[in-house]
């Protein structure tokens, strides 16, 4: 019974790793591999290839698709692009880790309790409007150039979207659900665990998605301002040498990383918020 119900949405609790992966790939790539989208994408790619080759745009400014692909291959094989991607991902993961493990609890606490909200919220509301890139100079002076500074900048980018979305979601929990749990004697801790967080799941995941996007922005800014590795550094270095194709490769990879992470979040949402599917 349970299995049949879960299967309706393409997922079962005891699904094997392989089928789980295929489910993820289907949801992630499903929208890309369609005739409708191919009819848009293929002409665009063809135009990208043809325009520089035919001389409609100068090919020093717009490298054709084939040259970008060759450069990417070359960079992966000969110039250690893997290493740069890996170090960038490590920095990003560290920043996101700290952002999640501070913003989620603080957001939940502020949404749950008026006393805490009155004390903490104004502080965050004052600090949040400072654009995260404006923190770069002071961070470099205080933390120096290196992993702590990069982690801190990524943390800054991701922290506020996660915090405010979590706080809003928890604050707007339907009082009917709270009342129905309280009548049966639920403690505040049980309410947080079993009612508030679940009710706020949508906004929380939305916050994490925005956090991922802003975290990637801050990753590039942080790497451009210091360090000898990473995708942001590579972008800047290519600019110095006027290597258009390498820049485009970096941009493509960054776009792919962002897209992939958002798809992962969508997958997590589909897994956790199965009950919303029926609505």
């Amino acid at each position: 019974m349970l299995n049949r119900h879960w299967k309706k949405y393409g997922a079962t609790p005891g699904m094997s790793g392989l089928r789980e992966l295929s489910f993820f790939l289907k949801t992630a790539f499903g929208g890309l591999v369609t005739i409708e989208f191919a009819s848009v994408l293929v002409p665009l790619l063809a135009l990208w290839e043809l325009a520089p080759r035919q001389g409609w745009v100068p090919d020093t400014l717009v490298p054709p698709l084939s040259r970008v692909a060759m450069t990417m291959w070359d960079m992966f094989v000969n110039h250690g692009l893997w290493g740069h991607i890996a170090i960038s991902l490590v920095r990003f993961a560290l920043g996101m880790f700290f952002a999640l493990f501070t913003a989620l609890p603080i957001g939940v606490l502020m949404g749950w309790n008026l006393f805490l909200r009155k004390h903490a919220l104004p502080l965050f509301q004052l600090l949040a409007p400072v654009p995260p890139p404006a923190w770069v100079p002071i961070t470099i002076i205080v933390l120096g150039v290196g992993l702590p500074m990069q982690t801190y900048l990524i943390f800054l980018g991701a922290f506020y979207p996660i915090l405010f979305n979590t706080y809003q979601g928890v604050k707007e929990t339907d009082p009917r659900y709270l009342a129905s749990a309280r009548v049966f004697g639920a403690s505040e801790w049980t309410l947080i665990r079993s009612v508030y967080i679940w009710h706020a799941l949508g906004p929380i995941i939305m916050g994490i998605k925005i956090g991922i996007a802003l975290g990637l922005v801050m990753l590039i800014i942080a790497e451009m301002h210091g360090g000898r590795s990473g995708l942001g550094y590579m972008l800047l270095e290519s600019k110095e040498f006027f290597q258009m194709d390498r820049m485009v490769v970096c941009m493509v990879i960054l776009g792919a990383i962002g897209w992939f992470l958002i798809e992962v979040m969508k997958y997590v949402e589909a897994k956790l918020a199965l009950w919303r599917v029926g609505r």
């Binding site: 049966f184 505040e188 009950w275």
Partner: peptide
């Protein structure tokens, strides 16, 4: 109303049925 921070402890032996069900959709 809830009156307890960590332990689930009903004050009175009451159950309530609400107009709009209020069963947890999750």
């Amino acid at each position: 109303i809830a009156n307890s921070l960590l332990r689930d402890r009903p004050k009175h032996d009451i159950a309530m049925i609400f107009q709009d069900y209020a069963v947890f959709p999750w």
